[in-house]
């Protein structure tokens, strides 16, 4: 029996799988008829193939399905990062906007509102009305604003409750007293009213603690402008009653307003900061929870 060539082996293998063309199959059939060894080889290969095909399928020991919680695709890094950064930038923009808004409002309040307005919002409207009335009444009597270093009540005959105020402040207010009036009449604050504070006044403000200022401004009992025995004093003022003329309406110690507004500004800005950080944290938490459904 002649050994089988590699080419014949491939021919037999292809014939097992039915991969021969009709011509090739016919040629092989002729060879098998004449070559007994080739026929035996072909029969053995066919038997072996039958053994392999009859092998029972292998049973997997477990399932290989994937766990969606582990293998679920994650969101795109760029998309997630983009949303995350928008959240952070938005939070900072919110904080900045709120902070600037509060700063502007506070600046306007400091230049416009007297101490009573800052300390006692309920009396704010009444005091403003009172100031307007008094300015109308005193505009003819009082010297024009900025005329020298004269204090508000240029006429010494007028009762100067402002002097009591100055005693508390340990400093005599300067042209600010008369200077604020025109601005209030016009109904809009001017930066000049704030910037015209003499250095001596700011020194007095510095000597006065914030606690004193708050107590002075917040409590009518501590307000020297208010006569405790007089039921018509500003602290208990009925808004429809005429304003006492003997009081100096414009003797508002602006430094007190500043001393009180600074903590308020910080408070609001802190609230805005906390809100912004909370918003950013909430967005980050939401994104994380969205990643893991």
């Amino acid at each position: 029996m002649t050994p089988i060539s590699e080419q014949q082996q491939e021919l037999l293998s292809a014939a097992l799988d039915g991969q021969l063309s009709a011509a090739e199959q016919a040629q092989l059939d002729q060879q098998l008829e004449h070559d007994h060894g080739l026929a035996v080889e072909f029969a053995e290969l066919r038997s072996m193939q039958a053994l392999l095909q009859e092998l029972p399928p292998v049973r997997p020991p477990r399932s290989f399905t994937l766990d969606p919680a582990i293998h679920a695709p994650k969101r795109s890094f760029w998309l997630g990062g983009w949303i995350r950064w928008v959240g952070v930038v938005g939070a900072f923009a919110l904080m900045l906007t709120v902070g600037l808004q509060l700063t502007n409002q506070s600046g306007q309040s400091m230049t416009m509102a007297p101490v009573a307005d800052m300390a006692n919002p309920e009396a704010a409207n009444g005091v403003s009305d009172r100031m307007a009335i008094e300015n109308n009444n005193t505009s003819a009597e009082a010297p024009p604003m900025g005329s020298g270093s004269g204090s508000g009540p240029a006429d010494p005959s007028q009762p100067t409750t402002a002097e009591d105020t100055m005693a508390v402040l340990d400093q005599t207010p300067e042209p600010m007293v008369g200077g604020a009036a025109p601005a209030m009449i016009e109904g809009y604050p001017t930066p000049m009213a704030y910037s015209s504070i003499p250095i001596s006044d700011t020194a007095g403000m510095a000597r006065m603690s914030a606690e004193q200022a708050t107590a002075l401004a917040g409590s009518p009992l501590n307000n020297p402008l208010i006569d405790q025995n007089n039921p018509s004093s500003p602290g208990t003022l009925d808004l429809e009653q005429p304003v006492l003329k003997e009081q100096t309406p414009t003797a508002q110690p602006v430094p007190i307003a500043m001393a009180e507004s600074e903590p308020s500004l910080l408070l609001w800005f802190s609230i805005a900061l906390v809100l912004g950080v909370g918003l950013a944290s909430a967005m980050v938490y939401w994104l994380k929870s969205f990643k893991q459904p």
Partner: peptide, 27 residues
């Protein structure tokens, strides 16, 4: 593929035949 398959079958056939695990064909 055809070439590898042919060689693999021939080798495995020889292995099984040597262990008398393959039905003997008539010669």
């Amino acid at each position: 593929v055809k070439s590898r398959l042919s060689r693999a079958r021939a080798k495995l056939r020889d292995y099984l035949k040597s262990r008398e695990l393959l039905p003997t064909a008539e010669r």
